[in-house]
Nucleic acid binder design. Structure first.
Lengths: 331, 331
DNA sequence: ATCAATTTCGCAAACGTTTGCGGAAACCTT
DNA sequence: AAGGTTTCCGCAAACGTTTGCGAAATTGAT
């Protein structure tokens, strides 16, 4: 017969009170060594595990954190998730994951679930459509910590961890200038994203129109296919560009298709440099030189922020994960 | 002042009993329409949400499922996760994520967490090192459903959902034969994996050594780099092979590097066909023809199995997600 | 031997629900 | 008017913990 492993059960078998068992298991000084031993031995024998729900109910804090992203199937997000999960496991937290599908309704419904489950905190990359933070701020009334990451809102009084977009773009620009490239095609994402704006600004500053030596063509693309078409257009004109800068992995894949289609040699015919989360650039030959903005690092950073917030010892702030150049052979 | 939204609170404000409030909120027939309205109105006003932990404690079943994979950062796994999460949300379940890092200790520790949290069920892709199922079977004593996916154990009496490995390989073989390819290099993964064995067997059957018209070279590789080296070796010998079959995405990426390095034209110089989860093959030009074994589909399948198990109406069995050919231009 | 200090433990309430059961009131029957 | 139904609601126990407080038992000091 299967007997449930509970404090009550142990207390009955040892004819001591439940409270004594509870204290014995947490090594409370009030309990004598002998009693502790009897309790822990039996607990081990019947494989006692505290009931998480009872504990959470009693203590009103669960060791659970949530991560909400627009979609999981994205190398950046799941490297972030993976990273946070790693830390969480070490510190005895479990992670629940939520997809918003970039849908505001799903997003708020997910937040409801978080309240319902009385989670300790949530990491969230808000959906693009969402401008209304009230649902998030309400979480804080419940004592649930909120850490925004990646696409962080402009609103000041919240915790944010984000990539050092400006310095990442700056690193890429450094390389381009050091290699004395003169005719650059910069492929950027959607204009309205802050990430795009920050990266674009760096390039515009570093390669000003007034500089007669170098020319920078700027194009905004909104998909991999789009990037392929645009790159193809530029590459068709003989020696119009000598370098292509891609703002993201998605853009890079499109560009690489265009290059493979035309069978252009990298970096002889055209140089490539990209900003990436770290996987895509290694798929090609030669491997693409890229500035790494790692979801992994961001995850670690976010987690440590979460812990400080949980301990109450931290005020609202924005912190950045720095970027690093990974040299390939593409420029 | 922040007042907690609980049944007790509502009952006090309306001077009715807690049980009445509880029943009113679940639309129990015992409660009169007027009372129901009073309760639901107030509940909405103070934004009442049932405390998940209290509910789980009382009913001893939480609406939480877990997914454990060796690592999240893998296209197949996270398409699986994403797929399951989607269904879970629709049915009011939440998903917790666990990584085993292919480490048996972490794996059992994770299972402990599952018991502790009294989850409803778990989807698990066991770590490769693990041959001992006892920890999983113990979960069932706790009433926790276990569904193995992808790398399922041989053990009979458990629920498994897996990819139709044999038919996937068979589909690929069909294409190779239809295209009248004669000199085939088949690159397979680690020998001890059942997935490798099943796929390999199909190829050995379909291209028997006795057939003097076609030759099949079989190699086992254990990483992307390994695949690159091996492919490179074969490709160096002029017209030794006309077709390369890759068992997985990982292998494909290695092979493609080798091909790009030698700047061989696909499919003129060499044809490629692979089994894939659906993303990698689209990265190249021409896109690689592949047999799709989708984590997404497998997720849907696994979830529906989970639900049947939860409803108690199902016996242990293994089911398969079928494979489908996606034509690219690589063969 | 007396009293105080210490060690060791148990009582009981609380966390927020769910649910079987029983009971009061109101409503039909005949 | 008596008995039988039906409608509506509350009591109380239970889920498995944690924890403040008090009390018994032991120890030590004088």
């Amino acid at each position: 017969m299967f007997q449930k492993a509970t404090l009550k059960n142990i207390s009955a078998q040892l004819s001591i009170s439940i409270s004594t068992v509870s204290r014995a298991l947490k090594n409370h000084p009030d309990i004598s060594p002998e009693t502790k031993k009897r309790v822990t031995d039996l607990a081990k024998l019947i494989e006692y595990e505290p009931n998480g729900h009872a504990v959470s109910l009693r203590t009103s804090n669960s060791r659970v954190m949530a991560i909400m992203v627009p979609e999981i199937s994205n190398y950046f997000y799941h490297s972030f998730i993976s990273s946070v999960e790693e830390e969480a496991r070490k510190t005895g937290y479990t992670i629940i994951i939520l997809q918003s599908a970039d849908d505001h309704e799903i997003e708020t419904e997910n937040l409801r679930l978080c309240r319902l489950n009385r989670i300790a905190g949530i990491f969230v990359c808000p959906s693009a459509s969402n401008t209304n933070l009230s649902a998030f701020l309400k979480l804080e009334e419940y004592g649930i910590q909120v850490i925004f990451f990646d696409k962080v809102p402009d609103y000041e009084a919240c915790n944010k961890v984000s990539l050092a977009d400006a310095s990442a773009a700056s690193l890429a620009a450094d390389v381009i200038q050091k290699k004395k490239k003169k005719k650059i095609l910069g492929l950027f994402g959607k204009t309205n994203l802050s990430i795009t704006q920050r990266r674009l600004k760096v390039f515009e500053d570093r390669f000003p129109k007034t500089d007669r030596n170098t020319t920078l063509y700027i194009e905004h693309v909104h998909s991999s296919d789009d990037a392929e078409k645009t790159a193809s257009k530029y590459l068709s004109k003989r020696s119009l560009v000598d370098t292509i800068f891609c703002m993201s992995d998605e853009i890079l894949t499109g560009v690489m298709k265009a290059i493979n289609k035309k069978n252009l040699k990298i970096p002889d015919k055209v140089s490539i440099i990209t900003i990436s989360n770290g996987f895509m650039p290694t798929l090609y030959f030669p491997q693409i030189t890229y500035v790494e903005t790692s979801g992994y690092k961001l995850g670690k950073l976010a987690f440590s922020r979460m812990i400080s917030c949980l301990n109450g010892g931290s005020f609202k702030q924005e912190v950045f994960a720095n970027a690093v150049l990974i040299e390939g052979g593409s420029i």
